[in-house]
Write a protein that binds this DNA or RNA. Sequence first.
RNA 1: CGGGGUGUAGUAUAUCGGUAGUAUCCAUGUUUUGGGAACAUGAGGGCCGGGUUCGAUUCCCGGCACCCCGACCA
Length: 419
Amino acid sequence: MKQSQLFTKTKKESPADEVSLNAELLIKAGFISKEMAGVYSYLPLGLRVIKKIENIIREEMNAIGGQEMKTSILQSKEIWEKSGRWSDEVVDNWFKTKLKNGNEVGLSWTNEEAHANILKQYISSYKDLPIYPYDFKDIFRNETRSKSGILRGREFYWKALYSFSKNEEEHNEFYEKAKQAYKNIFGRVGVGHLTYLTFASGGTFAKYSHEFQTLTGAGEDTIYVDEDKNIAINKEVYTDEVIENLGLIKDNLVEKKAIEVGNIFSLGTKYSTPFDLKYKDEKGEENLVIMGCYGVGLGRLMGTVVEVLSDDKGIIWPESIAPFKVHLLMLGGDENVKSEALKLYEELNEKGIEVLFDDRIDTSAGEKFADADLIGIPYRVVVSKRSLTDGGFEVKKRIEESGRIVSFNDLVNLLETKN
RNA sequence: CGGGGUGUAGUAUAUCGGUAGUAUCCAUGUUUUGGGAACAUGAGGGCCGGGUUCGAUUCCCGGCACCCCGACCA
């Protein structure tokens, strides 16, 4: 994409109404726009990052048998009354509205009811199980206080997968697969080294649930980390009994602030009971389906990456989720420079390498460099009179101090390499 | 929901009971072009409602919005 055609622009000033680093950088660089407290729109650059994250999650979910679908956002009162979660006394963060005929509807704030209700139509035999439907979806929660930029919003985009299994064994087997898939996800988006499998409250049907907590001062949660074993305990269940239970030693646990980027937990028959979600086994006997829930907030994950990976000049995107792989800067309006830059841009496009081409004519070199650092694309390639005189193109990674000159062919080969 | 704070141009801010200044951004022109270029010209502003006052952007009251701390967060 040509930067001259990108409608967003970077800002020199930090927004006055944002304190959190993720919102500050994402707004300055033109990834998101604030609509109101806790509600953000995703601009072209930001949406590209969300799509990258979405694809990574999609690949991991499909790999363990997930089937993508999309449940509706408008939810009927009847379904939620079945599970006992319609009442504002029970759930205080509903957004509710009414149809013209006066019927009450709610904007979905989670997906158990929707999935259980739909699957009721399709599950009747042991042959129908197990199944793993999931969706990417906008979720609405009327939080009393949103905060931390896109880490905690009233409207956000998430992935939720639900497992429907015949029995505990089958459930547990999938649960372990999902755990690994989640580790893969956080590794692939570039925060694996800071993300810990964290034991948290399990609710009625399991001893523990598992959260994936990424270490950052911007986080809302306190966890106790065992760095050697690569696991942690959430403060909410941090007791001597639990520590012993998990085979950990208190002295090895370090208190840290972290943000919950994902969680998985066993639901047992909590929702299959109210929705009468049963199947007939081989003997013709009816059994309740065992459910599990597996969620990730995509916006929160994007914000977490920004919190964790940036410097005083801007964002440092991991290549896996960067809006583009290459930021091509054309310096000066020299005809030779222009034609070389355009040639490289077209060559990279042909090879399917995503490149943001800063083709702006009247923009100074310093401004282009500053923008490139702020936007944070992994590779910066400079075409200028100087670079051509020196033998080609200057290539520099965002994390590197200085670049080096390479030839056209070497550059194309370098950028074509998968890593 | 309790407590605290802030609302001035697209953005960031200054000053002031006598109708608002700067930077950035934007437009035009000239000169520039490897770390947010220079000069000139121009466009653009007091959250909403009420009160006090000769006069309110400024003071007071109410509302709304936003931020922070806390509570809350399947």
